[in-house]
Design a protein around this nucleic acid. Structure first.
Length: 269
DNA sequence: ATCGGGACCTGCTTGC
DNA sequence: TGCAAGCAGGTCCCGA
């Protein structure tokens, strides 16, 4: 479910309910996530007031008076704000009970997500991350320079979190289509002017998806948090074999570094 | 340096 | 209708 736009939408959705509230209890029903949940999470967070909720890459960081906890939603994770007496459903693994009468509930069927306790706001997983895609640090010049000499596909490059964070499989496919670049092209051979178009496309598609998430996922605080919000905007992802919007030729599919890749052989070169 | 594959999981869709 | 295979929005780690 979550790519960066959905993580950011989640942050915006839960932050107003969390900030200023105190955590009265933490229930970890299933600690076996991607990494085991440390008992410290419950011990240290209980009794503390939430300061702010921030995001780095696809990690949400809930800052407390002392320390913080960090959540990654993996492939199937979600966070909801619910009344304290809300019925438990399958895969509801962690609750943070608030003094407001609400709770923050983490659910993750596939358990590819993770929740960490951060005593000092640092974590090894945060150490080697590239710039945020929507920041000024992520520019055509930056990507051009980072790509010189690289013998790897452009799709592999932009999905590498050491280069730039938050570009998942859907938006990598979409941004490459919109900038007319074939996903298999070697990153080291792409010109600065083409990188200009690519970076613009990445920023535009992510920003647009965040807006879409903000409108159609606004009710994700309720019981059903159905996504699918950006689906009608997708030009290539999930459309292998269908006609290209621009030229009508059949969209091609292949795997790049194990991930489903779709492109138009006529429009993307 | 880069890539492929396996790992971690469940659930939904597809095909026989 | 049932069942198995295949696939999924992430990302880390290993071996080649």
């Amino acid at each position: 479910m979550p790519e960066l736009p959905e993580v950011e939408t989640t942050r915006r959705g839960v932050a107003p309910h969390l900030e200023g509230a105190s955590i009265t209890a933490v229930a970890v029903r299933e600690p076996r996530l991607r990494w085991p949940v440390s008992p410290e999470l419950a011990q240290m967070a209980t009794g503390q007031r939430v300061h702010t909720v921030s995001r780095r890459a696809k990690y949400l960081i809930v800052h407390l008076e002392r320390g913080a906890f960090m959540i990654h939603l993996g492939m199937s994770g979600s966070l909801r704000i619910l009344p304290v007496d809300a019925a438990l459903q399958k895969h509801d693994h962690i609750d943070w009970v608030l003094d407001s009468g609400q709770l923050l509930r983490y659910r993750d069927p596939r358990r590819f997500g993770s929740v960490f306790w951060l005593p000092d706001l640092s974590h090894p997983l945060l150490d080697s991350l590239g710039p945020e895609p929507l920041s000024e640090a992520f520019s055509a010049k930056y990507l051009y320079e980072a790509s010189r000499g690289k013998q790897r596909s452009i799709k592999g490059l932009i999905m590498d979190a050491k280069i730039v964070v938050g570009v998942g499989n859907i938006y990598a496919n979409e941004a490459l289509y919109r900038s007319g670049i074939r996903p298999t092209v070697l990153a080291g051979k792409i010109s600065l002017s083409r990188y200009l178009r690519l970076v613009d496309a990445i920023k535009a598609v992510l920003a647009k998806a965040i807006d879409a998430g903000g409108t159609s996922l606004r009710d994700f605080l309720r019981e059903d948090g159905t996504p699918g919000y950006f689906r009608h905007e997708l030009k290539v992802y999930g459309r292998e074999g269908e006609p290209c919007d621009a030229c009508g030729s059949r969209l091609k599919g292949l795997k790049i570094t194990g991930r489903a890749t779709v492109y138009c052989a006529a429009c993307q070169r």
